[in-house]
Amino acid sequence: MTMSVSRIAQAVAVKDLRIELRSRIVTNQVLPFSGLVMVMFAFALDSDDVLQGVAGGLVWLATIFSLFILVQRSFAIEVSDGALDSLRVAGVNPQGIFLGKSISLFVQLIALEVVLLLTAVVLYRVSLGGAGLVLLVTCVVSATAGLAFVGTLYGGLTAGARGRETLLPLLLLPVVAPVLISATRATEAAFTSNGVTVSEGWPWVAVLAVFAAVFGLGGLLSFGSLIEE
């Protein structure tokens, strides 16, 4: 019996999130790491004006550093005992695996970003109005979708490679540069930092949405070939 893509995606996402809840990698390692990045910049820059100006960029930089760890972890659980091989042998639809792993990554990244944004509000004293909040939520959702799709795609690409721990950031960092730039600009607009208005952020959100759509579609079409030997 061939299972639907959505059913497989749901099973993979639930499995991944259950494993993360038990191993507590996000709460015990990723969250403290990204929190440290935020705090260290606060000490290093030590000026409210500067910090308010760069708050958006720091949130997304910390998110992207954390993305590397989360993607490594997401595929380590698949390759450590040959589960990805077994899924391939079983002919499980790779689109379902791609979507499921992307959903799991999306949920973990959203949880992380909420904490980082709250940290920015408290630590860097950035202000956020009603219109800014709508822009910020839209930016976070579209940027995170893009990061989850591209992270899963490149995680699958490097899953079987030697030296994947160092290869992944090397390959992924240039690809996520548009997300870093667009999300930073949109978040600056949401925080009205550096004299930018909220309305100036929406074109950047459109870039994020296009990025997510391209890598979502590209991942669905190519993930099966990427995880083949």
Partner: peptide
């Protein structure tokens, strides 16, 4: 043929945390 063939290699293909 993949759906009809099962391979159990040196590894078990299991998730240790589950």
């Amino acid at each position: 043929i993949r759906e009809r063939v099962g391979l159990l290699g040196h590894q078990n293909g299991l998730f240790a945390e589950l």
